[in-house]
């Protein structure tokens, strides 16, 4: 049996979390492919409807980083 791999959608703030992810990329650090990043101008932009839509479309978890 294959282990459950949750699909995670990450909303990342342009000024911190996304910058950190970008830096991680520059440093050639790896992160799991089941995390998909959505770049937002500010994590305050993330609304309940964005999170609900993500779940509706099949993700298992939403990560808001900012």
């Amino acid at each position: 049996m294959t282990e459950f791999e949750p699909q995670i959608l990450a909303f990342a703030c342009h000024y911190c979390a996304y910058a950190a992810a970008d830096l991680a990329g520059s440093m050639r650090l790896q992160y799991p492919p089941n995390v998909k990043v959505v770049h937002v101008p500010c994590s305050g932009r993330v609304d309940i409807i964005h999170i609900l839509r993500a779940f509706e479309r099949g993700v298992d978890g939403v990560f808001v980083a900012g």
């Binding site: 309940i48 409807i49 609900l52």
Partner: peptide, 13 residues
């Protein structure tokens, strides 16, 4: 409009 979208999403799920 926002509450309509939230309720619609919740009902679909």
């Amino acid at each position: 409009e926002k509450e309509v979208a939230i309720l619609a999403s919740a009902l679909r799920m």
